[in-house]
Design a protein around this nucleic acid. Structure first.
Length: 427
RNA sequence: GGAGACUUGUCCGAGUGGUUGAAGGAGCACGCCUGGAAAGUGUGUAUACUCCAAAAGGGUAUCGAGGGUUCGAAUCCCUCAGUCUCCGCCA
């Protein structure tokens, strides 16, 4: 959620940011003006309400004194006056609540402002290719199989079985495929631990406050599985529970940096997805992911972002996967992000780039929703910056491994993973 | 799931209708004391919104959450959530 102070003190920044989000000029002007006028309304109402309540408090005390000294006539007269004030304050309170609600709704529905260096653009086509790991992409022979066919040849995952047990998009990993899943998780967690991230095992369901804190609600409500009986959401990523660990917490500067990592299964409804791009493991409803999360001092967050990007680069190269990094344009970034780098692995048989990681700096956007703050040198509370990244999401990594590493004997396991899989060839 | 007890500030803990944002203690911060430390001692120690150009200083709200009764609620009533104990069920 954008800070109100931005609208009051840095209006230009808001306007530029929303332009980068491809908002129309008149929509921007409209929204900014609405925010400012709602804020004015809120403040003036608050002032009037406070004064009314203060007057009532003084009179109530007086009534008490009068009653004690036996002066019931005057006391009764004052009661009538207080009743009047009460009616007035109730009206004002309703108005105040309405103003706050409208303001909150508006602010909650607004995206974060992209960083100055984020490129303008409308869609994924406008993303900037920021880094390419290899000059040459690997060429497979003409009869190379897409991963879902590799998985028919060797037992890795079974989608039909998932349909039987649950429905489409719930793969069942088995045999060496299941071991590969477990190996990747273990490998990613070990790497994160070595980089100084504290490991968390989070709940897989969260309450509404948590979903709101990281920005899933109200923006991406339809993306989450929702348990109506208990009013809980299945997490779409460990980011949600892990970031909310510090919801409503005031840190001190010496607590920085805070690094958490977590393995979790992730649940996404992916409503409306269809076609060849969702075949096999390209897009599923339940998948495994190791997430890294950082809370930083506002001045250090971009340093931390690059640090996280380096961490993910290390994972990709240890997995020996060809990849590139995109710096997302304003039109393709998630609502909550101020800057996002997407990692894409080359899937050689599909001849496609598959997104395997997204590393973002949210600046104060999530912290403002969550009220995650720190006390600065002057003792003032300030919002922290939050960041997170996938390190990494498994299904597309497995897809790329199956396709890129297929041989006549089976699928070659990258060297760094062998200690975890305890086999060199998946066959 | 059933029955009961409970939920106050960083923590412990007082407080059953009227200057209670909240006694007392601990912790923490700064100072005094000390050769240094401990002990002792002094001061300070919530958050949000708001008024003021700003500072200083005001105001309002907050005693699990929300609502109600009352001139006035941490204190009374209702709803919800959570914690603990016993019973039931269970990996």
């Amino acid at each position: 959620m954008l800070q109100l102070a931005f609208f009051r003190e840095q209006k230009d920044r808001v306007v530029t940011g929303l332009k980068k989000r491809n908002w129309a000029d008149d929509a921007i002007e409209n929204t900014v003006n609405t925010v400012l006028s709602l804020d004015d309304k809120r403040r003036s109402t608050q002032t009037e309400l406070d004064a009314t309540l203060a007057e009532g408090k003084v009179l109530s005390k007086k009534i008490g004194d009068l009653m004690k000294s036996g002066n019931h006539t005057e006391g009764a007269a004052l009661k009538a006056k207080v009743a009047e004030l009460k009616e007035k304050s109730q009206t004002l309170e309703t108005q105040l609540d309405e103003a706050i609600k409208s303001l909150d709704d508006l602010l909650l529905s607004m995206p974060n402002l992209p960083h100055d260096t984020v490129p303008f653009g409308k869609s994924a086509d406008d993303n900037e290719v920021w880094f390419i790991a290899q000059d040459q992409l690997p060429e497979l022979s003409a009869d190379a199989l897409p991963h879902w066919e590799v998985s028919h040849k060797y037992p890795v995952f079974d989608l039909e079985l998932g349909v039987k047990l649950t429905g489409g998009g719930f793969p069942v990993f088995r045999g060496k495929g299941a071991k590969l899943v477990r190996a990747l998780i273990q490998f990613f967690l070990d790497e994160a631990a070595a980089a100084g991230y504290e490991e968390i095992v989070p709940p897989l369901m969260v309450n509404e406050a948590s979903a709101r804190g990281t920005g899933q609600i109200p923006d991406k409500e339809g993306q989450m599985y929702y348990i109506t009986a208990d009013d809980l959401y299945m997490i779409p990523t460990a980011e949600v529970p892990v970031t909310n660990i510090l919801r409503d917490v005031i840190l001190s500067e010496k607590d920085f940096p805070i690094r958490y990592c977590a393995y979790s299964q992730c649940f996404r409804r992916e409503a409306g997805s269809y076609g060849a791009h969702v075949r096999g493991l390209n897009r599923v409803h339940q998948f495994d992911k190791v997430e890294i999360v950082q809370f930083t001092h506002p001045e250090k967050s971009y340093e931390a972002l690059l640090d996280m990007v380096e961490h993910v680069k290390g994972l990709m190269s240890k997995l020996e996967l060809p990849y590139r990094i995109l710096k997302l344009c304003g039109g393709d970034m998630g609502n909550a992000s101020a800057m996002t780098f997407d990692f894409e692995a080359w899937s050689a048989a599909q001849k496609r780039w598959l997104e395997v990681s997204s590393v973002s700096n949210f600046e104060t956007f999530q912290a403002n929703r969550m009220k995650c703050r720190y006390r600065d040198a002057n003792g003032k509370t300030q919002l922290v910056h939050t960041l997170n990244g996938s390190a990494l999401a498994l299904p597309r990594i497995i897809a790329a491994l199956l396709e890129n590493n297929q041989t006549t004997e089976g699928v070659r396991i990258p060297k760094a993973l062998i200690p975890y899989t305890k086999f060199e060839i998946l066959d």
